[in-house]
Computed example of a mutant assay.
Amino acid sequence: MTIEINKKRYRDFDSYMKEKFHKKIIKLPLDGGFTCPNRDGTLSKDGCIFCSETGSGEWTYGKKSIAEQISYQKSRLSKEGRPEAYLGYFQNFTNTYGDLSKLRKLYYEALGASDIIGLAIATRADCLSGEVLDLLEEINNKYFLVVELGMQSVNDKTIRLINRGYDHKTFDTGLRKLKQRGIRVLVHMIVGLPFESYDDYMKDVAYINESFPWGIKIHNLYIEKATKLEKFYQKNDLSYGIDMAGYVRIVVDILRKLRPEIVINRLTGDGLSDEIAYPIWSKNKAKILTSIDKMMKDKNFRQGDLWREN
């Protein structure tokens, strides 16, 4: 069966992986039973202001063995007759935070499952000890590895507001340590954080271009019901200031200013629809993505067409 490459005007993850592996590569969300220094009292017990009670692991399968989780996610995400392989995706909380022997056991348990070609590991830039980096480098030398870092913003005022627990300089240090080991880094950026403006998003893009990670995820901020973020909006009488059309325009501008080599892994948030309080438009992921594609095509824009190397 021939694998059809997507005809996007940006370097999307699905096409990148199809070109590299000649098959559909599916991320299998896994819960490694981790916590976070921003949850366990080491830095804070409150967590980041936007993080859900599941540690942003809404699509994981709960406290099952890694083998059971992989089997479940394959049954949910696979399509019969399609050439496929998989990435084990340690998604929620901080997946390099814990005893090294536990990390090694979990990572290699996932890698030992059939048709797993590598791992995606979501973590914090302040949880990358020398021992952890050694383990990640070892895996990277044998498998396809992506380490995801939640940058969210480069604005230290915003970083304090969202209670991330470490400053931008620390983030930058972690990113560069991974890059020095030859490890692919995926940076998360949020559009719509309280009190941020278009200028903040462009500063994020300028930093991403300069630090040159392998990939990026762009999320629209969405407010989940009964969360600290919803209470923050209510307490400060804030309104959500970006409509869908505005978000689409911002994302298109970001894509045009990004280096063309950076792999786009996501262009919207991905919360559970029933849990999102607002904006309501963020529940319609398909419409957001279609609108981005349409604007890029209608105006003949491409990723990086406004990027200039200094």
Rank of each mutant, 00 (worst) to 15 (best):
E53V: 04
S153T: 15
I262Y: 07
M189K: 12
D305C: 02
D298W: 06
R76W: 07
F90N: 05
S101K: 09
G57D: 05
L258S: 03
G269L: 00
L111G: 10
P29S: 08
I159D: 07
V147D: 04
A206T: 14
P213D: 04
T94N: 14
L161K: 07
F212D: 13
S211F: 12
S78P: 00
I116D: 02
L186G: 00
Y108Q: 04
Y222N: 15
K231P: 11
E137Y: 12
A226Y: 12
H219Q: 10
V147Y: 03
S211Q: 15
L149K: 10
N310L: 11
D204T: 07
K285A: 09
G182H: 11
C48R: 01
H168C: 07
Y143N: 15
K179M: 12
D200I: 05
L100M: 08
V185D: 12
K45Y: 11
I121N: 01
T94S: 15
N284S: 14
S114E: 09
R76T: 04
G33S: 02
I262Q: 07
N284G: 07
H22I: 01
H22G: 06
T35P: 00
L128A: 02
I116T: 04
Q303M: 06
K105I: 09
G41W: 11
Y108E: 04
S75A: 11
I3R: 06
W307T: 00
I264E: 05
R249I: 01
I276S: 10
Y86C: 06
